[in-house]
Write a protein that binds this DNA or RNA. Structure first.
Length: 745
DNA sequence: TTCCTTGTCGCCCGG
DNA sequence: CGACAAGGAA
């Protein structure tokens, strides 16, 4: 017990050893939040106040859940595997699997990830003959998820306008589709679990009796439905059956756009009669100047609980600010600084490059690649979202549950087996007519091995062979262990040979093999190693794991993705109005404050050194934009900042002269509105000016058949040159120079 | 039916 | 700029 509590500061100790009462812990960045949470759990168990079974601990990310389990396992000699520690979605999923009948779900219900969900919506729009331009699938998806996150079914949403009525129609159709095919999206996991507990008193009481302590991580990120779910499990409006230990930081709430409701902190205070809020303000991460800068920034927000981070360490270095002319120059500057830091002994993995949006990583990656600096980009495409993996998973889904129309449509003609739009259309009509799944329709129509309609002739081979394939796989896989099932499926579906033939298929093949590895480790770790369990795992986990964990590499990610992490040095780039704060949030005070919290999160990731940079011009959407520096830089007191001057190096010559032309001076609040664009333009034209034969872009030509035109593009070399000609009358054509007999004009 | 070119759109994030 | 859908050609 003593060892458990030793080293805690007074506030941490108070939080860990609180008596049986609900509490709210306001835990600033780097204040030892996870330690408090896990030590609290270990303390409760070790002091005999509760058994491991009586604890429910909820986080938002799988990573946080894993870390929590690992830390508890390190403190106590217990098996954390069976404990109810996990994400909201993971825990709800667990309950729904255990009580699938009461929840009105088929035993083999499958989970839709965002990509799947979008595909379902697109399919639905096609069925309803709705134009995607008029009702973008993204918007419908957002509407449905948002409603569910507020705990609302289609019948519970009020519609006062035609647009909402239309959205509700989609919502309803979407629901019936999902239910018919046994599919559950992320938000549905929570909503259905919540409804299960509200409607089934016996079940609800069972869980209330069991969980005496409910602990919540990142409480500021909970949405309304999640809060209601927590409250329900803790006893609802009736006297509470459990106490809640909520840890959060209102200043780090950055998920309002996906439904997070910071008001939950105030509601918790009221609903659970919390008498005292414990603030953890001592920061063990950053040096003083960084904290002071972050504190000064966040002061500009209103309605905070209010808290000031402090450190017993010294001031450290000032925050470095760099004003670049172009995004290329910004990247070059970052590369130079990284090289210097690395030479001084800072590990690359201790350096993070943070940005507001994923699109910004490209320029950075380009420069890092040219400088031969190794880096890892987080976010973006995740393992289980890759095309080839999705295809493989679709086959697995069909093995488990052939009525899954969604999976069937994905692979019925992939790899191509001659089942085209016409066949599919017939199939869909058939299914609609008999109110059955596509699989059932296909089966009754041409399917069953014996009744294949051979007489229909040529292109009708595809469908029976597909049905045969799936059935053969189903039979073969009954007794195979999961990894072998996958291996069998990959071979017999033709996926392996298909990607083997593709030009850039090598990486896809590697990923497919990696899928077998993922299944192997899943079988070792999970209690339930069935195929359905693996499919759920794939949807819920996403698979952020990437190889090369050991390699020393720079860390590139968005600010959102950086939450909870820390680095020796942080580069925060693209600090421009419109980008950060983001253009969509600028005019809305709540949006702006969320941007500011995001900035606060970014700054507090740095332990020793923090760089802020912005650029006067930047390529965005394929166009050069000219933005002014972010207001957030101005919100940091001057004495904490150190403005860096560009060094006069070989490659900085060009942009210095441009600056002189524009009357530009480096320093605070001085930026040229149009400096820099010539630099980039000139470089581009110089690079591509090498083709100087008589065939040039812009050359007027004449063709025997197509008449006169102008060359607008070319491709290839030697005798294999093709030119693209825009003809005055015949449109644009690609022509082989050798045969086309063009005459220059 | 399939491949390839052209055109349009959108860009924050996690389960 | 890049992903992806729609439309045209083999």
């Amino acid at each position: 017990m003593i060892s458990l509590l030793s080293g805690l500061n007074p506030e941490q100790l108070e939080a860990v050893t609180l008596p049986y009462q609900s509490s709210l812990i306001l835990a600033g960045a780097g204040s030892g939040k996870t330690r408090v949470l896990t030590t609290r759990i270990a303390y409760l168990i070790q002091s005999g106040q509760v058994s491991p079974n009586g604890i429910l601990a909820v986080t938002f990310t799988n990573k946080a859940a894993r870390e929590m389990m690992a830390r508890i396992a390190a403190m106590l000699p217990i098996n954390t595997r069976g404990m109810w520690i996990g994400t909201f979605h993971g825990l709800c999923h667990r309950m729904l699997r255990a009580h699938y009948q009461d929840a009105g779900l088929p035993q083999t219900f499958l989970i839709l990830d965002i990509g799947d969900q979008q595909a379902v919506i697109k399919r639905l729009l096609k069925d309803l003959s709705v134009d995607e331009k008029v009702f973008p699938p993204r918007q419908i998806q957002w509407f449905i998820n948002h409603a569910k996150e507020e705990g609302l079914r289609a019948s519970q949403v009020e519609a006062h306008d035609n647009f909402t009525r239309r959205m509700l129609e989609f919502y309803r159709v979407y629901e019936t589709l999902c239910m018919r095919e046994g599919m559950v999206d992320f938000a549905e996991l929570l909503l259905r679990c919540y409804e299960l507990l509200t409607r089934n008193e016996i079940l609800c009481n069972h869980y209330r009796d069991r969980f005496r302590h409910i602990l919540v991580d990142e409480f500021q990120d909970t949405n309304r439905l999640q809060y209601r779910w927590l409250k329900l499990l803790a006893g609802g409006d009736a006297p509470k059956s459990a106490v809640v230990f909520a840890v959060g930081d209102d200043d780090q709430s950055i998920y309002a756009f996906r439904g997070a409701h910071t008001g939950n902190m105030q509601e918790l205070e009221y609903d659970f009669a919390i008498e005292k809020i414990i603030k953890l303000e001592q920061n063990y991460r950053s040096h003083g100047n960084i904290l002071e800068a972050a504190n000064a920034l966040i002061e500009h927000n209103r309605g905070r609980f209010g808290k000031n981070l402090w450190t017993s360490e010294g001031h450290g270095e000032p925050v470095r600010v760099y004003n670049a002319v172009t995004d290329f120059d910004e990247a070059a500057f970052i590369v130079d600084e990284i090289k210097a830091l690395h030479a001084e002994g800072v590990a690359l993995s201790e350096i993070a490059l943070l940005y507001r949006s994923n699109a910004q990583s490209r320029v950075l990656e380009h420069s890092l690649f040219n400088a031969s600096l190794s880096y890892r980009v987080y976010g973006g495409m995740r393992f289980f979202e890759r095309q080839e993996i999705k295809h493989a998973l679709a086959y697995l889904r069909l093995i488990a549950h052939p009525d899954d129309d969604h999976a069937l449509l994905r692979v019925i003609n992939f790899p191509p087996r001659g089942i085209g739009a016409r066949t599919l259309e017939q199939l869909q009509d058939e299914a609609k007519l008999h109110q059955t799944s596509l699989w059932a329709a296909a089966f009754s129509k041409g399917g069953g091995e014996t009744t294949a309609l051979v007489d229909e002739g040529r292109a009708k081979k595809g469908l029976p062979s597909f049905i045969n394939l799936i059935m053969t796989m189903q039979r073969a896989c009954v007794n195979l262990p999961l990894p072998e099932t996958i291996r069998y499926m990959l071979t017999h579906s033709g996926l392996l040979s298909h990607y083997g033939l593709e030009r850039d298929g090598a990486e896809r093949l590697e990923n497919l093999n990696e899928l077998i590895n993922a299944a192997t480790s899943f079988v070792h770790e999970a209690e339930d190693d069935s195929l359905v369990a693996f499919l759920s795992h794939a949807s819920l986990e996403g698979g952020e794991h990437q190889a090369d964990h050991h390699e020393d590499a720079l860390q590139l990610m968005t600010v959102h993705a950086a939450k909870g992490l820390e680095f020796h040095t942080v580069f925060l780039s693209g600090l421009e109005e419109g980008l950060f704060p983001h253009g969509n949030s600028r005019d809305d005070i709540n949006g702006l404050e969320e941007e500011r919290r995001l900035m606060y999160v970014a700054m507090t990731r740095a332990r020793r050194r923090l760089y802020l940079s912005f650029s006067q011009s930047r390529m965005l959407h394929g166009q050069t934009h000219y933005n002014i520096a972010s207001r957030f830089i101005n919100e940091i007191p001057d004495h904490l900042l150190k403005w860096l001057q560009p060094q006069s190096k070989v490659n900085s010559e060009s942009f210095q002269s441009v600056n002189e032309q524009a009357g530009f001076t480096f320093g605070r609040n001085a930026w040229g509105q149009s400096a820099g664009k010539e630099t980039v333009q000139e470089r581009v034209t110089a690079d591509s000016a090498e083709q100087s034969s008589r065939w040039r872009i812009g050359q007027n030509v004449s063709h025997a058949k197509f008449g006169t035109g102008v060359i607008i593009n070319y491709q290839g070399q030697g005798s294999d040159i093709r030119v693209q000609v825009q003809f005055n009358r015949a449109g644009t054509k690609w022509l082989l120079l050798e045969y086309a007999k063009l005459t220059p004009l």
